[in-house]
Simulated scan of single mutants.
Amino acid sequence: MNILLLNGPNLNLLGDREPEIYGADTLADIERGLSEHARAAGAGLDCFQTNHEGEAIDRIHAARGVADALIINPAAWTHTSIALLDALNAFAGRVVEVHLSNVHRRESFRHRSYVSLRADGVIAGLGVYGYRAALDYVLNGAERGTV
Rank of each mutant, 00 (worst) to 15 (best):
L6T: 12
G8C: 06
L11I: 03
L11Y: 02
L13M: 14
D16Y: 11
R17W: 06
R17G: 05
P19S: 06
A24F: 05
T26Y: 01
A28I: 06
D29L: 02
D29A: 03
I30E: 00
E31I: 08
L34Y: 02
S35L: 07
H37N: 09
H37D: 14
A40I: 01
A40K: 13
A41P: 12
G42K: 12
G44Q: 10
G44R: 11
G44W: 03
L45H: 05
D46S: 13
T50C: 06
T50K: 01
E55A: 15
A56D: 01
A56K: 01
I57M: 02
R59I: 06
I60E: 04
I60G: 03
V66N: 11
A67V: 06
A67R: 09
D68N: 14
A69W: 04
L70H: 08
I71S: 05
I71W: 05
I72E: 12
P74A: 15
P74C: 10
P74M: 10
A75C: 11
A75L: 14
T80Q: 09
I82G: 07
A87E: 08
A87N: 06
F91N: 10
A92G: 11
R94I: 15
V95T: 15
V98L: 01
V98K: 00
H99I: 10
L100C: 02
R106L: 14
S108F: 10
R112T: 13
Y114W: 15
V115A: 10
L117G: 15
G121H: 02
V122G: 03
I123T: 07
I123A: 05
I123N: 03
L126C: 10
L126A: 14
G127L: 00
G127V: 00
V128S: 01
G130Q: 02
Y131K: 01
A133I: 09
L135M: 04
V138N: 05
N140Q: 11
G141T: 05
A142S: 06
R144P: 04
G145M: 09
